[in-house]
């Protein structure tokens, strides 16, 4: 492997992995606290994508503002879905919450189909996203470097929040043992709301870079990032935040290795191979690469 191929490979893995890490992290933030596998998470991303589409096509707002509003709308959907759909079922069975998340997901998808269009809409992407950058003798679009940089910054910020703020310590306590944290005086509503808000925030950031890659928004677009998130989480471990990040990068690493090594005739089976690896993980290492501290108790 010569240097250029290696750098190209590294950039691909890191940029893809960064995006996947953010996706997985958004899932795990909610799972950690509520033990809820949130199937509506993909739709948090879709909402962000549609807002980018509307603002990008029908307004001439500057890009930073467009991105900010896009992210905020994903945050709003995350927060509101918790308030309207999940909170009334808190304390019910996990199955009830799971079905609720399906319902939220389907309702949002149908709303997009009926209210916007069942067809995909082209989301404008800022020109600088696709500007080619020369690095180590290879060219890569700026967005690949941006997502890496932004992920690093976000991970640092989240680490600081989780480690050094009152809210973060309370959230880590609550994600380990919700009942005990609550009995120590940690307010349940606040901690759960914040988890959904962070989840929505990550979904909003993902929406920006996802649409930058695909160039479109459509009602069912949330499915693929959701699936990616699940796979990353299975690989990395459902019960720890670092696990989700590791899972995202490992997923990207495996996917890129497969792309490079599989013979052309088998390339279309890349996803099948990927799923086989996931099944292997579920069978051989169901707790994922990083095992968080999992305790059975749950309040959602």
């Amino acid at each position: 492997m010569n240097a250029q191929i290696f750098f190209e490979f590294a950039i691909n893995v890191l940029s893809m992995g960064s995006l996947y890490a953010l996706i997985a992290l958004g899932l795990v933030f909610v799972f950690g606290i509520c033990k809820l596998i949130n199937f509506a998470y993909g739709e948090f991303i879709t909402v962000g994508a549609y807002v980018l589409y509307f603002l990008g096509v029908f307004t001439s707002l500057p890009w930073p503002l467009v991105f900010l509003i896009g992210i905020l709308s994903s945050v709003a959907v995350g927060y509101l879905s918790e308030l309207v759909a999940f909170r009334p079922f808190r304390g019910r069975s996990l199955d009830a919450l799971l079905v609720t998340s399906f319902a939220v997901s389907v309702i949002l998808q149908r709303l997009f189909q009926l209210g916007i269009s069942p067809r995909s809409k082209a989301v404008p992407v800022p020109a600088f996203f696709n500007m080619n950058i020369e690095l180590f003798g290879l060219t890569t679009p700026l967005r690949n470097l941006l997502i890496i940089a932004i992920t690093v910054v976000l991970l640092l910020i989240l680490t600081v929040i989780m480690k050094y703020t009152v809210l973060g310590v309370a959230m880590r306590g609550a994600s380990e043992n919700f009942v005990t944290a609550r009995l120590m005086g940690v307010p349940a509503n606040l901690v759960i709301s914040v988890a959904f808000i962070i989840s929505g925030f990550l979904a909003g950031v993902v929406a920006i870079f996802w649409t930058a890659r695909t160039g479109s928004a459509e009602p069912l677009m949330g499915m693929s990032p959701l699936l990616i998130g699940f796979i990353a989480v299975v690989i990395g471990g459902m019960h720890s935040l670092p696990g989700a990040v590791v899972g995202g990068y490992v997923y990207a690493l495996i996917a890129n290795i497969l792309s490079l090594t599989l013979p052309t005739s088998l390339l279309s089976f890349r996803d099948a191979v990927m799923f086989a690896i996931v099944i292997a993980f579920l069978v051989l290492k169901p707790e994922g690469l990083l095992r968080g501290n999992y305790q059975e108790e749950r309040v959602g």
Partner: peptide
């Protein structure tokens, strides 16, 4: 009013300091 538990209920992955800190921040 706060309590301890017959079956210990600590936050096992958090440091000792963080465990105690949660006790304090729980009451504001």
């Amino acid at each position: 009013l706060v309590r301890t538990y017959q079956t210990i209920r600590l936050f096992k992955n958090l440091s000792c300091l963080e465990n105690a800190v949660i006790g304090a921040i729980g009451v504001g």
